[in-house]
Computed example of a mutant assay.
Amino acid sequence: MTELSDAEGTALRSALSAEHAALWVYGLASAYVGENRVRSAIDDAQEQHRRLRDTAEKVIRGAGQIPPSAQPAYDVGERVSDQDSAIGLLIKAEGDCQVGWRSVLENTDDPGLRGTALDGLTTSATRATRWRLTVGQQPAAQAFPGQA
C-alpha cells in the first residue's frame, strides 16, 4: 500500500496505539503472574502484538506518514495486585485492540490491510476469550468482537 485515505490512516493509527498500549499492559501483567501456563500465554501474546505493531508501523510509514509512538506509561484506571486483576487488565487491552482492528477492517478495501486487520481482530478476540476462561468470566466469548 502506498497511500492511506484519511479514514484508513485514522483507523490504523488507532489500532497501532492500542497495540502499543497492549504491549505495555502485557509487560505490567507479567510482573503479577505465577503460573507457567499464564506466563507462556503472555509471551505468545506479546510476540503477536509486536508483529501487528510492526506491520501497522510499516504500512503507515509506507504511506509517507509518521506512526504514533508508544507512550512511556499508560493509565490503566485500576489497581493491579495479583494474577486475576492482571488478567482482567489484559482482557481490557485485548478489547481495545479489537475495536482498533475492527475499525481498520471497516475503513479499508485494501486486501493486504484487510488481512492484517482481520488477523488483529480475531487473534485479540481469541486471546480475550482465553483470558476470560482463565479467570472464570462468563460469557467467555463476545458475539461481536470489537464492536464499541
Rank of each mutant, 00 (worst) to 15 (best):
E19H: 07
H20Q: 12
H20P: 00
L23P: 06
L23K: 12
W24Q: 10
V25L: 06
A29N: 11
S30A: 13
S30E: 14
A31S: 09
A31Y: 03
A31H: 09
Y32P: 02
E35Y: 06
N36Q: 15
R37Y: 06
V38R: 04
R39M: 04
R39G: 12
R39E: 09
R39W: 00
S40L: 10
A41M: 07
I42G: 00
I42H: 00
D43L: 14
D44Q: 13
D44I: 05
A45R: 11
A45H: 02
Q46C: 03
Q46R: 14
Q48V: 12
H49T: 01
H49D: 08
R50Y: 09
R50E: 11
R51F: 13
R51K: 13
D54Q: 08
T55A: 15
E57C: 09
K58C: 03
K58E: 15
I60A: 06
G62K: 12
G62L: 12
G62V: 12
G64L: 03
Q65T: 06
Q65R: 13
Q65S: 14
P67S: 07
P68W: 00
P68S: 06
A70E: 14
Q71M: 07
Q71W: 04
P72I: 04
A73M: 08
Y74G: 05
Y74V: 01
D75R: 05
V76M: 08
V76F: 01
V76T: 11
G77M: 05
G77F: 01
G77A: 03
E78D: 07
R79K: 08
R79T: 07
V80Y: 02
S81R: 14
S81F: 13
D82C: 02
Q83Y: 03
Q83A: 13
D84Q: 15
S85L: 07
S85F: 04
I87D: 03
I87T: 10
G88I: 03
I91M: 14
I91R: 14
K92P: 01
K92C: 04
A93N: 05
A93F: 06
E94Q: 15
E94L: 13
G95P: 03
D96T: 08
C97E: 11
C97F: 05
